Computed example of a mutant assay.
Amino acid sequence: MKKNIASYLVVLTICILLYASFSSDKTIDSSKYSTAGLVLNYTVSQDAGSNDRDLALLNSNKAYSPYLGKSFVGFKEALAFKESRGDYFTINSLGYLGKYQFGKGTLRLLGIHDFEEFLNNPELQEKAFIANAERNKWILRRDIKRFVGKKINGITITESGILAAAHLAGPGSVKHYLRSYGVDNFADAYGTTIEYYMKKFSGYDTSFLKPNQKAKATSV
């Protein structure tokens, strides 16, 4: 009994002291407090709440993007990752350039003739991607209207799938694929087909892109 009373008195005393401290008009002098001598750096073990895939990603030096869903930015970043893993400064074994792996012939159509400048200019590469997609959208405008929503070889045709395939193979090859209902399925030098791009990049929002026959990209 005495022990319970003693515990009660201790708790009551603490409550009274806390009340007095909070109700006081005095300003706390923070200069009396210091973290000197305390060890403030703390590292969570790599085993805590992580799996091997997450650790490999975090320990690598490669940049990665948050999940962008089916937005237009998601579309172009997913396509760029497939083309070059998002590397602006790469040239593949066939001479295709940059983040989106442009051929020199396509770049000339877009008004770009200085390929070294293009390779070292991320802003120009982004402009080229937009211009090329808008040009392809104009060329394929009738096919987009005719085929979007239909199924070819079990794949639902979408505008983003068509534009991604046009980036891979050119708009002419995409026309052949659609109008042959999948019989004429172009494959690039690495074996990647129009049909693969149609499926992989289906359902993105590409309404941002406006059909433009004369789309160009410039560094100015």
Rank of each mutant, 00 (worst) to 15 (best):
D205M: 05
F81T: 08
V220Y: 10
V39Q: 15
F129H: 01
I16T: 10
S219G: 02
L140K: 02
K216F: 02
D47K: 15
K76H: 04
S160F: 12
L119M: 07
A48T: 14
E83D: 03
P66Q: 02
I28W: 01
L119S: 05
K32E: 12
L110Y: 04
N41F: 14
N212F: 10
R53N: 13
I152T: 01
S71P: 08
Y181R: 10
T13F: 14
K127Q: 02
G172L: 11
V148F: 04
S93F: 02
F22D: 10
S202F: 01
S30T: 15
I162H: 03
K2M: 07
A36S: 15
D205C: 07
E123M: 13
F129M: 09
S84P: 02
T158P: 04
L140A: 02
G98Q: 04
Y181C: 00
H176D: 15
S71Q: 12
R179P: 00
Y19S: 14
F22N: 13
Y100G: 04
I139Q: 10
E77D: 10
F147S: 08
Y181I: 03
F89E: 04
L79N: 08
K3P: 00
I194S: 08
L209N: 11
T158Y: 01
K200Q: 13
N153S: 11
G149L: 10
L209K: 04
K199V: 01
L9K: 07
I144K: 09
T13P: 01
K216G: 00
K2F: 13
F129T: 00
K70Q: 13
L55K: 09
Q46H: 08
E117M: 08
G37Y: 03
L55V: 05
I14C: 12
R135K: 15
N185Y: 01
Y33S: 09
C15W: 00
Q101L: 11
G161S: 06
L38S: 08
E195Q: 14
S50M: 12
Y42P: 00
D188K: 09
T193G: 05
K137L: 07
A164G: 01
T218A: 06
G149T: 08
T27N: 10
K150M: 12
T206I: 07
A20M: 12
C15G: 09
F75V: 04
R108Q: 15
D87W: 12
E83N: 08
A36R: 07
S60I: 05
P66G: 05
A80T: 10
Y8Q: 06
G149M: 09
A20I: 09
Y64N: 07
T158M: 01
A6K: 13
K175P: 00
F102Q: 05
F22Y: 14
A128E: 05
Q213I: 10
T27W: 03
V148A: 11
K200Y: 08
H167Y: 09
N61H: 15
T27D: 12
